[in-house]
Amino acid sequence: MAKVLESVDQRTQLVGENRLELLLFRINATQLFAINVFKVKEVVKLPKLSALPGSHPSIKGVANIRGTSIPVIDLRAAIGFQPMNSDQEANLIITEYNRSVQGFMVGKVDHIINMTWSDIMPPPKSTGSHNYLTAITKVEVDGATRLVSIIDVEKVLAEIVHYDIAISEGVLDEALVDKMIGRKILIADDSATARRQVKDTLAPLGIEVIETSDGLQALKLLKRWCDEGRDINQEILMLITDAEMPEMDGYRLTYEVRNDKRMANLFITLNTSLSGSFNNAMVEKVGCDRFISKFQPDLLVDVVQERLRTQLPEQVN
């Protein structure tokens, strides 16, 4: 088990090629679930847990992993199933999201699969808005085709950890406050929770957030505007994109935008829960203007203000 992810750092070449690797696991006997390998730090057998009185019901306790205390979330309970029994086989998937480390208690961890984002589909609309999936896909397991549900970890965490959308004192530039009103920003993110966090931060400033749930949707919308003769830089202030999404990831989206002369100068911010130095390298490679990790309202506002200053230098400098 300890070696299942030993080569994860060598896999970053997949990013930007519209490919991903998924770690498959089970939380019950019949269903397969997955999360992106890039968000996984380690997989270990579930160690002894220390109680955490007063914590969220889905937090089973704290694990001590080589001297670091890591909160452990019962993923089965967190997404609406009955909590795992203590006698069940349990493993701990240690992840890093939004600059925090946490462990997810799951059942059997199967293996890693290499896929393209074109193989990943959004969940059916009939599942409603309260499901805990960002996408689904199909894989071959033991000669049979199995459905795999990709967990919306950002939604799980948002229900357990309170995300403060308050903007710190001194962050807002008073010379720019009026300039934000009526501006539009396009966001591409497969997590409804992540889109809501951005919208809840920017909407009180008078900014309209146009939402798309994957890179391909965003690209089609941008191309349609171009085909209609609209000036993209006048239409929207910027594009904010997640890194990993069904249909088309944020790196590929950025590449496609940069290679269409009608919108090549669009200001693009990569806003992702993925961590690691490879993000900064990929930003430079594909041509993003900024990279910020989720979820940081102050940095989000700072990016908006940076863009406004480049558009209106004579008024605000």
Rank of each mutant, 00 (worst) to 15 (best):
Q10R: 08
Q197L: 12
V304R: 09
S100Y: 13
G143P: 01
K155T: 09
M121I: 08
L312N: 14
Y251M: 10
E228I: 14
D249K: 09
E244G: 05
D178H: 09
A29F: 00
E140G: 07
I181H: 10
R99A: 10
Y97V: 11
S273Y: 02
P53V: 10
E140P: 06
I94P: 01
V15W: 02
L147F: 06
A175I: 11
T241V: 00
I160H: 04
M1H: 15
P71E: 09
Q234T: 14
E21D: 10
S126W: 06
I210D: 08
G80A: 00
T30L: 13
Q102Y: 10
E314K: 05
V8F: 06
L270D: 06
E235P: 14
K3F: 07
I70D: 03
Q82F: 13
R309M: 03
E174V: 15
R76C: 05
L147T: 13
D164Q: 07
D189R: 00
K155H: 05
W117G: 12
M282I: 14
L20Q: 02
I236Y: 14
F267N: 10
D9G: 06
Q13Y: 14
Y251C: 04
K39E: 07
M105I: 06
E159I: 04
V44K: 09
T310H: 12
V43K: 03
D214K: 09
Q102I: 15
I210E: 10
S293I: 14
D152K: 01
H111Q: 12
I165C: 09
Y132P: 05
V109Q: 07
D214Y: 01
E256K: 07
E154P: 08
M245C: 01
L147W: 02
G128P: 00
K125Y: 09
M282Y: 09
S86F: 13
D231E: 11
G103V: 07
Q31P: 00
L5Q: 02
Y132V: 09
G67L: 02
V161M: 13
T95F: 01
F291V: 03
F33I: 10
I207W: 06
F38L: 14
A218G: 04
G103Y: 00
